[in-house]
Design a protein around this nucleic acid. Structure first.
Lengths: 150, 150
DNA sequence: GCATATCTGGATCTGAATATCCAGTTTTAC
DNA sequence: GTAAAACTGGATATTCAGATCCAGATATGC
């Protein structure tokens, strides 16, 4: 339901959040996240424009999170690359509907709102902190002590 | 977040549900729903394959709901034209993840599941029964007595 | 039976999302 | 200061959803 680009953006942010101290090159991130390197560059540019990551050019350059993973929400990442389009007004432009959506579009927009709310309260740090043996982007079953590094 | 095609399909079903006794031609539905007629034909074909509508060819032909609006859910309509893709396995194909999703993909899939659940419990009839002055597809403010026709 | 209405299915067109490529710019190490 | 590392931005290619078109099949009314 979310686009491929959103998936890529989330992978990149999670990868950066997994090691917040070091600078990752686009190449290294692409390998880690299994995203086409040339396309990931574009995604990273979007994330940089949204002030979620900071790019550093030149030797030893790369990308780092612009702020702690604990204050970056999934919603921010989603909106950086492909904003969730809430239904603001009647898609059929029926005059009598205007801002007050009919029951069909209200139902759909309520669903969007629900997703927005969930994404807005989920931080990247909270996702990484979950005691899940399968760690994002890592093929090894995660040992619990890894979590303490966060 | 949902595709344009899903929006079109829902409009068509809601239009048919608003007058369950008569047969609507694709042309008439297109006018009512403001969907490109030639494209709506394709959408209706998908709905027919999913056994949500029944097509009748020839003079006086057209489309009718295949079953009462009270037993057609939004989810069925969505799945008829563009199935909600739940995350079944690790998108990176990491061996150690397999069926057990990591916390990132679990979070995303949980959101999908939430939407699926809401759509699965909302019937077309329940949407039309809501006391909302703005009636789907109708430009006139709906009088409450209209609801009794259902 | 015949003309007309209507859906069906295939071929095609268009535009947006996805993906690639490369020349240009910035930064660092030496 | 120079070469190499790395991001930037623009141009281009590819893929697919969205949309169109039309000949063919089917059903009805007369």
């Amino acid at each position: 339901m979310l686009s491929q680009t959103v998936e890529y953006a989330l992978r990149a942010i999670v990868a950066l959040a997994g090691d917040e101290t070091t600078s990752w090159t686009a190449q290294a991130l692409a390998a880690k996240t299994q995203v086409p390197a040339s396309y990931l560059s574009k995604v990273l540019q979007s994330l940089a424009k949204a002030n979620l990551v900071v790019a550093q050019r030149g030797r030893n350059g790369g990308f780092v999170l612009a702020k702690p993973a604990s204050v970056i929400t999934v919603l921010e990442v989603v909106n950086a690359v492909e904003p969730i389009q809430r239904i603001q007004k009647c898609p059929l432009a029926l005059a009598s509907h205007g801002v007050r959506l009919c029951s069909l579009h209200r139902m759909l927009d309520d669903a969007y709102a629900m997703v927005e709310r969930v994404f807005g309260t989920a931080t990247i740090a909270s996702i990484l902190a979950e005691p899940n043996p399968a760690r994002p982007l890592c093929d090894q079953a995660g040992a619990l002590h890894v979590l303490h590094a966060l």
